[in-house]
Amino acid sequence: MIEIKNLEKAIDGTKILDGIDLEIKKGSVFGLLGSNGAGKSTLLRHLCGVYKQDSGSVLIDGAEVYDNADAKRKIFFVNDETVQFTSFTLSELKEYYKVYYPEFSEELFEKLRKSVNLPLKKKLGTFSKGMKRQAIVIVGLSCQTEYLLLDEAFDGLDPAMRMIVKNMLFDSILDRQLTVVISSHNLREISEICDTAGMMHDGKIVFCREIDGVDNVHKLQVAFKEEYTKDDFVNAGLDVLSFKKNKSVYEIIIDGEINEITKKINTFSPIVFDSISLTLEEIFLYEMESKGYYAQDILDND
């Protein structure tokens, strides 16, 4: 398990991480979302022990990760920069990492390499962006670490390559309970592979939720005989994310199970009551809004 408590980090006097609290369960696929500059890469670099935090703690299976070789051996980090190691061949890259990771499997490496047809003896500099990404992912998976951190891993991959990389991840998740942390600025890109997602903004985790579970955020369109305010619904025990009133129709976004919501709304004797569950994207937008952020600035919908 990854546990981050009150993590703070400033670089050159600028606060990049501003009190991060986060738990990532073993075997889960965690999506770390946020716009460019939100602090995703900085957070990942703390997770793999490259950066030393100013304060707070970063624990991997209960041990502080910075300057801890044993903890670091459990983690492989796939950087979002594709320019490193351009003078290496894939075979040299493999040998380079093999030294650090005792669980490295030649057998798995060969199997993965053959599945994507990457040449062993050509310099990585001659590879396309997608091939470089595949090369490092193959090496990373072959290291058989318990944790794999992917920084913008799907960025620039075409759909076919994305599918291949995804399938490789799935095999490792099933074979050895690999925990994956994957950052992205695009929710749609990673929504189907994550079970949990967290949104970063301005060096903070703005919110975090399970995304493959039962549908749990609903948009209600209701009308009543009487006038009500947002507080009336909050006091009734409803988790109101957004509240709008247009003439006599209320549009209320509520977090919760629909039967419970219905029961509570019925106590207000609605004359019109309609509900739909939200898409993941809408949930994120409303969650951001409820926290006082303008989600459009944060979610990149390209």
Partner: peptide, 18 residues
């Protein structure tokens, strides 16, 4: 199998397992 279906659909195997 969970694995086959996860790959076919491109969704997280944990979700299929659930």
């Amino acid at each position: 199998s969970v694995r086959a279906l996860a790959k076919e659909l491109g969704v997280n195997p944990n979700t299929v397992a659930k």
